[in-house]
Nucleic acid binder design. Structure first.
Lengths: 184, 184
DNA sequence: AAAATAAGTCAACATGACTGACATAAATAG
DNA sequence: CTATTTATGTCAGTCATGTTGACTTATTTT
């Protein structure tokens, strides 16, 4: 790959980087990271967006579908926490997904107020199809970025998340591994 | 930090990971990365969003302001390429930024059709303020993610970008280093 | 002089957020 | 067992930000 890491301003060994004394001027290479993050996310969403258009869905539908497919039995309240949007905002896209037979709702077994969410067979198919280009992109990016990239980039992204949400993220991930699918 | 990299399914040395034969089932830890990327971006944008509200601006204004501030003398066409939005969409937010004295336009010196974009003093102040929380977040994330994180995460993000845009990104970054500010 | 380019503008529309208020059913607490 | 809380749904209105399509103006290039 092309080397974008041209921080090779030659330094004598043991030297601290010379800060322009009065500075507080941000490191340009850190600002690059802001922009890289923007560009990466911009392109990351673009392949699924194209597919969604075929189905008359948008990015909001994708997010709901993805999380419901990955974490079957999710409650509406869980989804609101994950997506950090309002109930009214979620309601619209969720209704459309249910109406088109992508997602189905079942009352909670122990608490019948809850609506546990599940993907239908069709929903699983679509979710998988939407995941494909994103997984390819990630796989390719990890391959091109060196062997340590997986662990390191994973940690980096994790640490970019509000630490107040770290616990919730870990809990969520652990849920994807447990095969008890919290059914009904 | 909490270890989210629990890929320690013990393997005998030299072993390939055992794929469930018929599979093509995606690696769960790769799917985690999809979600980490979503969560990270969700939180990454949240601090500036709060500040922008004070000014009656939105995320779209932020993007324009950021790039104009970082790359003074940018043309409208450049901005359209960077943001990948339509001219009409840009026009609205750009007009508001100009009206509020955040950005100013000067006709190009050699081509007077062009409108070169620059931040005003006030614009620079706001751009800096919006950058601050994002830089803190990135700095903290890099620190928490190990010494190799900077180079590696930078490469990872770069490789998440469409390769067709790699050249443009590199060119852009080189522009931020050249002190000839392409004035008017 | 004609064509291409950079930018701006008008109009209509879609998506996905938001706030605020209120409704229903079911679970839990006093 | 009644009262309250909780989980969810819904109506109504608004805003921000994106889209398409058509057209104008100024300027440069051919």
């Amino acid at each position: 790959m092309t080397d974008i890491n041209s921080k090779e301003t030659p330094t004598r060994p043991g030297d601290e980087p010379i800060k322009s004394s009065a500075s507080a001027l941000p490191d340009p290479s850190l600002i690059d990271l802001i922009e890289l993050f923007f560009f990466a996310y911009r392109d990351f969403t673009q392949d699924p967006d194209a597919i969604l258009t075929e189905f008359g869905f948008g990015r909001a539908h994708h997010r709901v579908l993805h999380f419901v497919n990955r974490y079957p039995g999710l409650r509406v309240a869980d989804l609101l926490e994950i997506l950090k949007i309002t109930k009214q905002s979620l309601a619209r896209v969720l209704k459309q997904l249910v109406d088109k037979g992508i997602i189905e709702q079942r009352p909670g077994k122990s608490d019948r107020r809850e609506r546990r969410l599940f993907t239908t067979a069709e929903g699983q198919k679509l979710a998988t199809r939407l995941m494909e280009p994103q997984l390819s992109r990630i796989t390719q990016a990890l391959k091109s970025s060196g062997i340590e990239s997986d662990q390191t980039s994973r940690k980096f992204l994790y640490n970019m998340i509000n630490s107040s949400d770290h616990e919730a993220v870990l809990e969520l991930f652990s849920r994807s591994r447990s095969k008890q699918e919290l059914k009904g």
